[in-house]
């Protein structure tokens, strides 16, 4: 394997990871504030459709991306109204929205299906793209990669370093305690849900405008939203770990495509579904790693603890019961 080939693979991984990273970061923001937005898959698809349709209509892909973000925020608004203000189950509404938005995307997008349209093109940052090995991957190929890295930096800085980020984390850990200190809990949760939805909407836009350009039934990014949801758990609700999770799953996709070329005997169907068993296995590993029985075993056999990935912390308090449960 030449250095050039390896460098190209790394570039492909960062490119494929960009929308996954945005969607997973969006869900991270939402869940750190205590709102589980289960509608990720539908959000990404619908936003992809909306972004492509608007970009085609206006001839400007960046307006399309904005429309995608708006669509994502609108879906998050529906979820927030039901979950926060009508007291419905977030999981149930999120799941119905997943199906609804997916079908709505296919229905509304029928007119622009299999049509040519603009895309975000490529972009090279002078100077930085000449850095050996990683330069081309990060700064030399597409604005998509820069966008995802910028989102990562922004989300990390917001959650870890700003006052509103601190309030958001506090609300996600204990809404009751936050309310007793005078925080307007539902307003904070509404805002974090909207911001998360907008980020996921951007992810949809990145798919239809760059990573898997165009629209169709199917589009090709089906299932990405679910993987983003799993990445959040895998990353322990921490932005940087979540970003690594997105890179990991993108690497699996890229490896699938690369192996498909290398081993033509195996069916492509197997490589397309590869991320999903890996998703289940990573969740299994992460959850077993967090169990007390494993901690006790690792105390006796230190090697075990070193072999498994380091525990990334638990779920925010407000949602710990909802998705982190086990018997």
């Amino acid at each position: 394997m030449t250095v050039d080939y390896a460098s190209a693979l790394v570039a492909a991984v960062f490119f494929a990871a960009a929308p996954l990273m945005l969607a997973a970061l969006g869900e991270t923001v939402s869940e750190r504030g205590g709102v589980i937005n289960l509608s990720m898959d539908g959000t990404v698809l619908f936003a992809a459709m909306a972004a492509f349709a608007v970009a085609r209509g206006c001839g400007n892909p960046w307006l399309g991306l904005l429309a995608g973000a708006g669509a994502g925020a609108a879906i998050a608004l529906i979820l927030a109204v039901f979950g926060l203000f009508l007291g419905a189950s977030e999981l149930a509404v999120g799941f119905v929205l997943t199906l609804f938005c997916r079908e709505l995307a296919y229905f509304m997008g029928h007119g622009v299906a299999r049509q040519p349209g603009p895309d975000l093109g490529s972009l090279s940052v002078p100077g930085l793209s000449d850095i050996p090995f990683l330069g081309q991957a990060l700064f030399g190929q597409s604005p998509v990669v820069l966008l995802s890295l910028a989102a990562l930096g922004l989300v990390w800085w917001f959650l870890a370093r700003t006052r509103p980020g601190l309030v958001l984390r506090a609300v996600g850990e204990s809404p009751r305690a936050a309310a007793s200190r005078g925080v307007a809990v539902r307003r904070v949760q509404l805002l974090c849900c909207l911001a998360g939805g907008a980020l996921a909407g951007c992810a949809g836009g990145l798919y239809s405008l760059s990573v898997k350009p165009g629209w169709g039934h199917p589009q090709g990014c089906e299932g990405a939203g679910w993987i983003a949801l799993a990445i959040v758990i895998f990353g322990g609700w921490k932005p940087v770990r979540v970003a690594f999770g997105a890179l990991f799953f993108a690497a699996i996709q890229v490896a699938g495509i690369a192996l498909q070329d290398a081993l033509p005997g195996l069916s492509g169907a197997l490589f397309q579904i590869a991320p999903f068993p890996v998703m289940i296995l990573t969740l299994l590993a992460v959850n077993l790693r967090r169990s007390t029985a494993f901690r006790e075993a690792a105390r006796r056999v230190p090697l075990l603890g070193r072999l498994m990935p380091r525990s990334a912390g638990g779920a925010p308090g407000a949602i710990a019961g909802a998705l982190d449960k086990g018997f």
Binding site: R163, L166, V167, E173, R176, S180, V183, P316, G317
Partner: peptide, 16 residues
């Protein structure tokens, strides 16, 4: 009625 995973100074800074 506090926020166990947050740091001491973060708890101290929150609210009012």
């Amino acid at each position: 009625l506090d926020f166990p995973p947050l740091r001491v100074w973060e708890n101290f800074a929150l609210g009012g």
